[in-house]
Design a protein around this nucleic acid. Sequence first.
DNA 1: GATGAATGAGTATTCATTCAT
DNA 2: GATGAATGAATACTCATTCAT
Lengths: 212, 212, 212, 212
Amino acid sequence: MSTAPETERRIREAAFRALVKHGYASLSLTDIGEELGQNPSIIYHYFDDKDDLLLSMIDVFVDIFVDERTEQPITDAEDELRMIIDQILHPQPDHVHKVMSSPPENIETAVSRVFVELWAHAIWDDDFRCETTEVENSLREILTRTIRTGMERGEFRSVNPELTAEHIFFLLKQGLHTHATTNRAAIDRVHTLVNQIVDELSTDKQSECLGA
Amino acid sequence: MSTAPETERRIREAAFRALVKHGYASLSLTDIGEELGQNPSIIYHYFDDKDDLLLSMIDVFVDIFVDERTEQPITDAEDELRMIIDQILHPQPDHVHKVMSSPPENIETAVSRVFVELWAHAIWDDDFRCETTEVENSLREILTRTIRTGMERGEFRSVNPELTAEHIFFLLKQGLHTHATTNRAAIDRVHTLVNQIVDELSTDKQSECLGA
Amino acid sequence: MSTAPETERRIREAAFRALVKHGYASLSLTDIGEELGQNPSIIYHYFDDKDDLLLSMIDVFVDIFVDERTEQPITDAEDELRMIIDQILHPQPDHVHKVMSSPPENIETAVSRVFVELWAHAIWDDDFRCETTEVENSLREILTRTIRTGMERGEFRSVNPELTAEHIFFLLKQGLHTHATTNRAAIDRVHTLVNQIVDELSTDKQSECLGA
Amino acid sequence: MSTAPETERRIREAAFRALVKHGYASLSLTDIGEELGQNPSIIYHYFDDKDDLLLSMIDVFVDIFVDERTEQPITDAEDELRMIIDQILHPQPDHVHKVMSSPPENIETAVSRVFVELWAHAIWDDDFRCETTEVENSLREILTRTIRTGMERGEFRSVNPELTAEHIFFLLKQGLHTHATTNRAAIDRVHTLVNQIVDELSTDKQSECLGA
DNA sequence: GATGAATGAGTATTCATTCAT
DNA sequence: GATGAATGAATACTCATTCAT
């Protein structure tokens, strides 16, 4: 059997790690080759060019966050919601290891950096922009579905599920973004805010609302 | 007085416009020189190097969003809050023109792009990181101060002003970020969510909470 | 018998077609592999390297223009001469098909291009130079022989057969060359000039004309 | 005064010499830089890219063969014709030195090589093709004009001046071509043939000869 | 015989930066 | 203060060639 698909995956993971190390603006194919432990020219056997390779790295995101969730039946809506939130804010090595054979060392930092860099590139490249939009749609969809299910089962209060999902999603993204781009520890603050929202959803109290 | 400070400002603005056009990763001094209408080597009379110039562009942000507000006395807290929010989500040409003599054409897009690009670069450069952190601190401080003032005057409900300010600030940033990096019209959605929070602050109603 | 000689010929023809398509300077083994419909590395089973393969393409020329003529007895000198001229200026698909199983589409263009490219390469490569010299010698020899035969039989006026052959040959080559390398329709002009020479040969006027 | 035009000319001449040394197919900007004694990147200050530089080398041809002749009044048609022929077949260092400050060593070889290489490239590049066509038109025009003038003054027999000029021109080109691409000494042979034609032109025999 | 994965040397081109004027 | 000529290091990408299968 051909080793090709394995090699393609190894290149993608090497690119991921190299991106975490060097950043988009100064990421060279040489860097990727070094991370890969092979001559960079091999990249052209598996990808059209640098952009094609980097574009494919959004797939790594999909692998980590989206794929497995889309088809899963929901058992407990609140548990499910909290688990999704947790996995985005604190990606676990075990989970990441399922989709990457050699993940970078500090996964939390790695994921937030790559998120910020790839999304930033989407400003300039339509293909990237399509992918980022789609990934976001999928994740928002998962959140929306979970909230709606919770409402239908009476676990959650009656809210606009799309808007609430979007609210949560904005905060999650911003947690990663602020974590990667400032000296502030933003993830815990976001966790607090998002927990409030989930708490609100699952209490039948009428008061104590967001930001309070 | 020499024309030097004027030239320095012109260079900074040219760099700003060039960044809006080309993006950080592919921004060359040639691009900036073209935007400036002068030979790019003049940049070295006013800045140490490319990084120094780009770092100084965060100052443009400070000029636009922070400076004038820090010392202003607050008259009406809710008005003030809504105005700050509006100015971040929809920067007005008139206002920007006060701090830039030749602003780029589409200011809303320009500001969100530059925000995303400069912050992304802060991942890799400690000097940038200090600046981004500081700018965010200032803006959060303004929001916090406004909320606290509103509370003290009885205009707003009693909340944790730091946390609420942070909540609003996360959403505002994410509005710009999503606007710049996906195909979704995120700014209006963010406006809706933030308005809800401000509404909550200024009503004494006990019900109808976030996302509802 | 093994299929090897057949494969070797197929490779040579593929190289010929690829050369017609891409030109010497930008002809890659990948191009040849594509034309061949096979993996380019197979070439190394039949040829030492790229140069060796391209050198062998001169043989295709020999196959087309020289081989069959060298041993043929001459029946009518003028007819023969006009036929040779015609075949060089307007190679017929039928005739080419005898030596190539998959000739390129526009043979006239193909032949002139390959002639110009291979001969140009002969500037730099002694092996090529030997081959081009030899092919030219053979063709000039055929022309000379035909003219001499015509003279001996009284069909042609008395001229210097080597010089006249060379004169005709120069013009024929230049027809192909100008056809391939400029926007001018040179072949018909050459035909006119060469016909004049042949006419002169076969008239019984005594006037000493050019080439005599 | 700026040194720029001087540098541009130096680059063009270096490219000319490098082309004579290495040939089109294996001519790298590094080669040209070496010939120039400077870093190859300087080329991009004066030319768009490699093709632009090489295209400009046809101008060197125009400088050598065409320019000075176009406006000169003709004194003696036969002398003039023989001089043009001589200058193409045997370019003199003195003459070349007028348009190149550092010509290559063996000018005869250099000119024929560059002619063959540039013309060969015209097969694939329309810009080259335009230039080659134009240069040829100019040279043919000069020959035609000289022959026509000779006829009008009664120095030459009555012939078709265009066709005779073309005849001569074909032979001259083929002299250079054969000289560059085979092991045969073709230039003298061509000289003999062309001299015959000119002799024919200036004899007063009435017999209708070629080109008439 | 034939494939295709892998290599590494080489190529055109870009770009921040320097420096003489 | 401002220019623009010049540099050299770095970069993406290509391609002939090898070799294990």
